[in-house]
Structure formats: structure tokens, C-alpha cells
Design a protein around this nucleic acid. Structure first.
Length: 585
DNA sequence: CCCATGAATCGTCGTGTCGA
DNA sequence: TCGACACGACGATTCATGGG
């Protein structure tokens, strides 16, 4: 967060007003509730559950008079009766244990900032069931947050399916659940103590693995949660919940229009912190932020399809995708910010823009995706004066077919990845590596011979050649000026080869310039019609996604294309705006 | 190459533990 | 009481994922 432009983790939801109702009134009264003593069981615990955590008992007993002292889990709360002389100094558990206890107990009513990737929406019924089963959750913010974490975190030890495998509980995440004061205790925190308190006060069968046996974080061995609650919870998470009465498990607030509104407002404000690098960027963002949010909520009805598609993804990408989906469920409308080294608008949190494209296509099934054909290649071809590329792009034969023929690679993905890397300045090794990676992911390994052929394709090889000239030019001039007149100096970029960065920034600026006529048309249409027949819903760098409010695709799409194509032609870039065909296999 | 996001990794350090 | 040792945690870095 040192980065001033970075917005904070959007979960600022946690301020006074969002304190759960349950807390009212208890503020000043000491925790009389169960607290008193029941909790404490400090020693009641079965002696042996040992490994997890405590081997401590054995020695403790003897030397300490204060054995009693240490078992008071919440002693600190009742300072009223602190005993004068006692246990102070020679506590076998150490001051840090006691301090950890104290801070954890104070987390009953804390300012807690949950991880962004943690899904927190559940149906009202399930939340009620959880509160009934474990009443302390109602009034202990920290335990409630940690309970939610254990139940819902995507961070699981099998790295595979969402919701299977055991939750991983790194100390940092645990501390985060118990609020700022616990986090601030930093290196002195005894995480094990917190876990034991959770077990003692909340879920008595909770159990976890040891730490650092192999350098990994702790893992939950047994959530210990009541089976009927566990099942209800899983069922709820799996279902499509479009019509469910959702609440935020942590705050207890209904996830209704009002809350969504507040979320949006906060997010927009956070995005304002960054300034656009060009006027077109500002226009794009204003337009996109002005969209009617309700139109994005309509996407949620495709959520089950999207999840099904996401299940197909192999490896770590699946978890990423589900995290994205959860965020979309919470607030599907994307908000954009500006970054240091590009004119592009990027969404401020993961969401539609960063979602796996196959999954995204499911969600936006009813919308139309338009993008520039081979945009990056076209831009490089023109700006670098690559004759063979210009010719190829203007010819009948698609560049992709040509590349496929040359390399013998049947699928487009790796070739696309390779050409991105080529025009954005990637080194030869990078280009090869990216292609190989993309190919492997699709299950069609790409051998080094194929990679070599890619680089020696006439178009690619001339691109590489002209690219070197361009890089040298940038180096000599100490930078370059993009199509918006921004001077990009190599000095301002902290990198081994800032020229490459400049090169890619130039292309990215141009791509925005080529696309902007579509934005202007959209603004115009909005002005001229009572109800805009179409609007741009999502910005995808070299394309965008359009929603039609009236069945006028046949009429309007060609107009949009014409506006953009006109500019491409005027400026001499051999690319066109195309409707992306959903090619299902 | 640009972006955002998060997980894993590794060296360092203060402190509790335990045996002498 | 002292010193060796292991542990829990930090912080920075590196490596993944996703998008173009």
C-alpha cells in the first residue's frame, strides 16, 4: 500500500455503520456472556491432541504458580480484578502468549479487513444456522471472520477443485481475520495460541497440522464443523443463488441494492485516485463508469454455465477463475483505473476483464464481442514499416493460417501468444517460452523446431528485424512520443531494457486511438435516442463487448465497424473491427 | 512486452526450550 | 545461568495465474 495510486483493498466495508447489529449494546458492558468462565478451559483440553499444537502442558504445571494465570484466556478483559502481585513476570508461556490472547480477545469487536479473495456471501438461512450452532460467532468478530475463512477460502491444499481439499491457514491470514491489532503484533504473534482459542471457544473439534515441517503453512486437518451445517453450507455455495436472500456472512448485512450501490461508490472513488494518461482514456472511463449497473447483474443468470465451464480448467488457473467469479457475483460491474506504464484502462480488481475468456463468453453470451483483427501485428507492421506484414495482412490468407502452415501447429493460441510477445518487444527466448507454455496448456506440445520455424516465418522475422531498428532509435532518442503526444522517456522506466517497455506502450496507445471512434459513436447514440439501442459494457484493450437493448444488431453493428475501420484506413493500419465468432468445438 | 493478483520461497532474526 | 538450537514470523523476491 505504499503505492499511493493503489486503492485499498476494497473491503472498507467495515466501519462503524457496518458493525453487525448483534453488537449493539454490548459495547460497554463487559462480556458477561459465556465468557466468564466457561471459556476458559484452558486446561480442559484433552492432553494429548498434542501435535497440533500443544505440547506445552507438561512442563507448565510444575513451575508455575501461575498456571492459573495462563489459562485465563480472557483474563485481560476483566481488568477489573487484576491481581496485583501475581503472575506477571515469570510466565512460562511468555509475554507474547499473553499478549496474543489479549489481542485476540479484543478482536470481539474489531476492525477487520478480510482478504479480497474470500467469498463472503451466503444465504440468510445458512448464516442463521451457523450462528445458532456456534453462538459465539454472533459476537466475536475475529472468530466469525476466521470461521468464514475456514469454510470458504479458495486456498486449499490440493490446489484443485474449489471447495475440496483442506484450507491452508498461513499465519498472516489468520492474523488478518482477527483484525488490525492482531496483525500489528507482527512477528511477536503466537498464531498457535489463536488457533487454540478458536478451538476452545468455537469449534471444539477443530484441528490443524504442524507448521514448517516442509516450509509450508499450516493446514486445517479437521474443520470440526457440525456435519449438518457443513452440508447446508456446501449446498448453498454450489447453488446458483440468483434468487436467494444473500447476506454478507461477516457483517450480516443484506447484499441488496443499497449495499451494492455503496460498494460501487467506494470503488469508483478509489479509481479516481489515478489519472488518465490521455484524454481518450478519460472519455472511455467516464463512459464505462456511467453504465447502468443493473445491466451487469443480468449476467448472473449464466453463472451456473460459467461455473461448469470453469470446472474444465486444469491446475491453478481454476482457483483463479473461481475467485474471479466470486467477485463478479458480489459486484459484476467493472471499474477502471490507470496505471503507470500504459494508457490502457485496467479493471481495479479482478473481474470480467481478467476472467478466463471461455468462462467470460458464457457469462456474456447475450452480448456481442467486437475486436480488432490482429491488432498488434497491424500496428507494428505500419509503425515499423514491415512490408511483408502489411502485405500479408491485406491479403486473403489469414496470418494465422500462414503461421499454422509454417509451424505445423494446429491451434491458434500459442501463435497468438507468440505474436503478442513479438510485437510487444519480448526477447526471442521469451517468445519461444510463451508459445511453448500456451501450447502445452492446450495439450499440444510445441517442440523447439516448431518454435524456430515460427521465428523464421518471413513476417515474423522481418518484424524482429525492424523491431531492433526501432528499439535502437528509441534508445538513441532516450524515449519516444506516443500518438497522444505523451513523451515517454526511457529514464522514467525502471527496467533493464526500458526501450522494450516504450515500444509496447506506443502500440498500446495506438490501439486505444483506433478503437475510440466506437466510443464516440456510442456516446452519440446515447444522446440521440431515448433509450440507447446499444452500449459498450466492457473494455478489452483491443476490443470491447456490446449489449443491444433493442434488436438492431444488423443495423448498428456495421455502423460501429465502419467508424473504426474508417479510422484504421485513414491512418494506414491493416486491421478491421470484427465480430468475434464463438467458435465452439 | 503491458496490466492485476496471489502463492511460494528463502535468508534473517528474536525468543523460548532444554541440557549442561 | 549459559549457550546451542529450533521455531515462528518477517520481507523481499520470484513465480504462477488470468487478460491483451
Amino acid at each position: 500500500m505504499s503505492d499511493p495510486t493503489a486503492e485499498q483493498d476494497g473491503d472498507f466495508i467495515m466501519d462503524a455503520e457496518s458493525v453487525p447489529e448483534a453488537f449493539e449494546g454490548k459495547l460497554e458492558t463487559p462480556p458477561k456472556r459465556r465468557g466468564s468462565k466457561s471459556t476458559i478451559q484452558g486446561q480442559s483440553r484433552p492432553p494429548e491432541d498434542g501435535e497440533t499444537g500443544d505440547r506445552r502442558e507438561k512442563k507448565a504445571p510444575d513451575r508455575s504458580p501461575k498456571a492459573s494465570g495462563h489459562c485465563i484466556v480472557q483474563a485481560p478483559l476483566c481488568e477489573a480484578k487484576n491481581r496485583p502481585s501475581a503472575p506477571q513476570n515469570a510466565d512460562p508461556r511468555g509475554d507474547r502468549w499473553k499478549e496474543t490472547e489479549r489481542r485476540t480477545n479484543q478482536a470481539r469487536n474489531a476492525e477487520i479487513d478480510l482478504p479480497a479473495s474470500l467469498p463472503r456471501l451466503v444465504s440468510r438461512e445458512v448464516r442463521g444456522q451457523a450462528m445458532q450452532t456456534y453462538p459465539i460467532l454472533r459476537e466475536h468478530d475475529g472468530h466469525r471472520a476466521f470461521f468464514l475463512y475456514v469454510m470458504n477460502t479458495p486456498n486449499r491444499d490440493d490446489g484443485g477443485h474449489w471447495g475440496t481439499g483442506q484450507p491452508v491457514i498461513p499465519w498472516r491470514k489468520v492474523a488478518r481475520c482477527y483484525g488490525k491489532r492482531v496483525q500489528d503484533y507482527g512477528r511477536n504473534l503466537r498464531t498457535r495460541r489463536i488457533l487454540k482459542m478458536y478451538r476452545d471457544q468455537v469449534v471444539s473439534d477443530f484441528d490443524w497440522t504442524g507448521y514448517h515441517s516442509n516450509g509450508h503453512a499450516r493446514v486445517v486437518k479437521d474443520t470440526g464443523v457440525d456435519p449438518s451445517l457443513e452440508e447446508a453450507w456446501r449446498e448453498d455455495q454450489k447453488s446458483d443463488r440468483r434468487d436467494a436472500d444473500l447476506v454478507d456472512f461477516f457483517t450480516g448485512k443484506k447484499h441488496n441494492a443499497k449495499r451494492r450501490h455503496k460498494l460501487r461508490r467506494d470503488r469508483i472513488r478509489a479509481c479516481r485516485a489515478s489519472e488518465p494518461r490521455c484524454s481518450d482514456g478519460r472519455k472511455w472511463r467516464r463512459y464505462l463508469h456511467d453504465r447502468y449497473p443493473g445491466n451487469y447483474y443480468g449476467l448472473l443468470k449464466h453463472m451456473p454455465d460459467a461455473k461448469e465451464e470453469a470446472e474444465e480448467i486444469e491446475g491453478a488457473g481454476r482457483v483463479q477463475t473461481f475467485v474471479n467469479l466470486r467477485r463478479i457475483e458480489e459486484q459484476p460491474m467493472p471499474f477502471y483505473r490507470f496505471s503507470e506504464n500504459t494508457v490502457r484502462l485496467t479493471t481495479s480488481r479482478s473481474g470480467l476483464q481478467n476472467l478466463n475468456s471461455d468462462v467470460r463468453d458464457k457469462l456474456t453470451e447475450e452480448w456481442v464481442k467486437l475486436d480488432l483483427s490482429s491488432a498488434q501485428l497491424a500496428i507494428a507492421a505500419k509503425d515499423w514499416g514491415v512490408e511483408s506484414a502489411l502485405k500479408q495482412l491485406r491479403s486473403e490468407e489469414s496470418i494465422w493460417d500462414s503461421l499454422k502452415n509454417r509451424t505445423g501447429v494446429e491451434i491458434k493460441a500459442p501463435l497468438k501468444k507468440g505474436s503478442y510477445a513479438t510485437v510487444y518487444g519480448g526477447k526471442r527466448g521469451t517468445i519461444k517460452g510463451r508459445m511453448a507454455y500456451a501450447a502445452a496448456k492446450e495439450g499440444h506440445p510445441m517442440d523447439s523446431e516448431a518454435q524456430r520455424r515460427f521465428l523464421s516465418h518471413p513476417v515474423i522475422s522481418e518484424l524482429l528485424e525492424k523491431r531492433e531498428a526501432k528499439l535502437e532509435e528509441i534508445q538513441v532518442n532516450g524515449g519516444a512520443t506516443d500518438c497522444y503526444g505523451n513523451e515517454i522517456s526511457t529514464d522514467s522506466i525502471d527496467d533493464d531494457s526500458p526501450e522494450r517497455s516504450v515500444l509496447s506502450q506506443l502500440a498500446q496507445a495506438r490501439e486505444m486511438q483506433l478503437l475510440t471512434p466506437a466510443l464516440e459513436l456510442a456516446e452519440e447514440v446515447e444522446k440521440n435516442y431515448q433509450v440507447a439501442p446499444w452500449e459498450i459494457m466492457l473494455y478489452l484493450y483491443d476490443g470491447f463487448v456490446v449489449k443491444f437493448n433493442t434488436p438492431t444488431e444488423e443495423y448498428h453493428i456495421p455502423h460501429i465497424q465502419e467508424a473504426v475501420n474508417q479510422r484504421c484506413e485513414n491512418l494506414g493500419y491493416p486491421t478491421r473491427l470484427e465480430v468475434e465468432t464463438m467458435c465452439q468445438e
